[in-house]
Design a binder for these strands. Structure first.
Lengths: 341, 341
DNA sequence: CTGAAAGCGCTTACAG
DNA sequence: CTGAAAGCGCTTACAG
């Protein structure tokens, strides 16, 4: 590969001058500039970023640690990161913990996670990334996972209990509140809820949103209308069977994710309950599968792309020394109305 | 950040010696080594890879260009790349063309694509990646997309017509042959096929596999049993309606992807045709959605993870100067038997 | 307007 | 066994 010295020799100028025209700085005579530009064009010269990074002590590179790239939320978030990075000429160094692949839903504790993260974290620091985005696959507290370091970190799809850490998430409470309100306003007064595992922060927030929406609409909370599943399709099916065969059959079921909502659809179908005439079903997450159920599932769309975009935008602000007013941001979700409600 | 000079000063040795113990080379007295190691440990020193890369003219970094990260095949392939990269201490620079997001299924021609790829390609070269993996989202000929350069490239989930280019793909023909044979051996003699758009190489290969499987099993090819859809759910539904309402109702339908197979399931359900007793349905791709249909869809699993792993493995072999015997590799798919067959 | 020189943090023959 | 010095490809005050 040609280097700046080669260009200088060909143009019969110094490397300083070549550097100046490459970076549009300093005064360079128009004739000299054109001559250099022509040569650069001719031999298709590409400046060596590694050398530049070393000299400038700036790599224009962001490290991404994703807990599992194969989980549905990760690609969209990274897509958002990529888009912004490309527009602003940042590069992305991607590392993947493969947590779900290794452990499934049985998350290891923070200490085990930390041991797995360590080598990736060090690799990124060695590569002199200017900041790190940590993408969780489950909303939870990952406090203490990453060691202290002067490299700024933004957490997304997870958070830490440290007030000074920056995180970008979505508003679970409001999404659940809105979905429940939507169902009520559509005329479904008996709204049941199929929750995910209750050790999850999401499940808490969504439960609260559900309850408050009932209250705001003057409806009574009915404990018989709340069932707890384990986020999987089968549990949605079972819980729906319980609900739909019970005495007070609900007219709508809000499931805390699209998988369990799929189980609800199956249960309704087997019981010959017409959706949405006799039963409205609402999911959560807007996973790809939700639009392939029959009927197509109404659901809550997560702002994944925006989470990625705002994560990197915020991170670059920190790198640039700006002060971040809101350390914990929660973006809004969107209701997607399809055929099940 | 501390540098090698700081370590040298603290240990009262030269930077050369520190470098030697860091890299386990040269003779260093045991005492000196321990002393240096201790200091490195204490101040948690991390060598600056950027400086090392510049000096060594080796970055240990691979560039990945993915046509669209959000399309179902990409994350698994990258997962395979990541796993191997981590084990072998390579870093991954990820860039994303976002082709599907921008154009959907209406792929732009190679010239348009090239213009989009150019900046990403140059960014990677500037960063001195040692090789590039190009991940397509559709099996097709991408000849001429990437400019000539001395940086080695491996194509996966796509190919070029240039015999000297390296590509890693899967064996569409054999997968289709096997799926068809499987259905026949299960006792389904009248196997229909719902094809994707015929301008696709995959569709051709899968069609040939289907035909040859019929022949090998002594069955006659029946043109009425072949319908052409557009890869989408709705087209699967329509084609299935045609087939199932026709005079000679098939006893099995092989759809060229899981989306169209979903449409087949819906059609069968509406016509009250029992799956799999009266009709077997087989899909292709093993997308997440396939295991959430009712009944769960039997399908062909693509070796995505392996494609990623073998892509980077092959690429690193090229970088290391080894000669690659097979330039065009096709990995085997696996049949996933679920409830629809 | 242009260039000589120092320096970013490493590695590596080479000398002692 | 250890160190001085050159050099990887850039940028940037500074001098002229």
């Amino acid at each position: 590969m040609a280097n700046i010295k080669d260009i200088a020799d060909l143009a019969e100028v110094s490397v300083a001058t070549v550097s100046n025209v490459l970076n549009n700085r300093g005064r360079v005579g128009e004739e000299t500039r054109q001559k250099i530009l022509k040569i650069i064009e001719e031999i298709d010269y590409k400046p060596n970023r590694v050398a530049k990074s070393l000299k400038m002590n700036k790599t224009h590179t962001i490290g991404v640690i994703v807990e599992d790239l194969s989980v549905f939320n990760a690609p969209e978030i990274i897509d958002g990161i990529n888009e912004f990075a490309e527009e602003n000429d940042y590069s992305i160094l991607l590392t993947n913990l493969r947590l779900y692949k290794k452990y499934g839903n049985q998350f290891p504790d923070v200490d085990t996670c930390r041991e797995m993260v360590m080598p990736l974290f060090h690799q990124l620091l060695s590569n002199q990334v200017e900041g790190i985005i940590y993408i969780g696959i489950h909303l939870r507290n990952v406090n203490g996972l990453l060691p202290d370091s002067s490299t700024p970190v933004v957490y997304t799809y997870c958070d830490t209990s440290d007030e000074s850490d920056i995180s970008i998430n979505y508003d679970d409470y409001k999404a659940s509140f809105d979905a429940t309100s939507y169902l009520i306003n559509k005329g479904y007064q008996e709204v049941a809820l199929i929750s995910g595992l209750i050790n999850s922060e999401s499940a808490h927030a969504r439960f609260n949103g559900y309850c408050n929406a009932l209250m705001s609409n003057g409806l009574q909370f009915n404990p018989n209308y709340v069932k707890t599943g384990d986020w999987e399709y089968e549990s949605g099916y079972k819980m729906a069977m319980d609900l739909l065969k019970g005495e007070q059959r609900p007219s709508a079921i809000l499931a805390m994710n699209d998988l369990m909502a799929g189980g609800v659809i199956k249960a309704a179908s087997e019981l010959n309950i017409h959706v949405p005439d006799e039963l409205a079903i609402f999911g959560f997450d807007n996973r790809e599968v939700s639009s392939y159920y029959t009927p197509k599932l109404s659901t809550v769309s997560l702002p994944l792309h925006d989470m990625g975009e705002i994560s990197i935008k915020t991170l670059i602000d920190v790198i640039d020394g700006k002060t971040i007013k809101t350390k914990k941001r929660k973006l809004l979700c969107e209701l997607i109305e399809r055929d099940s409600s």
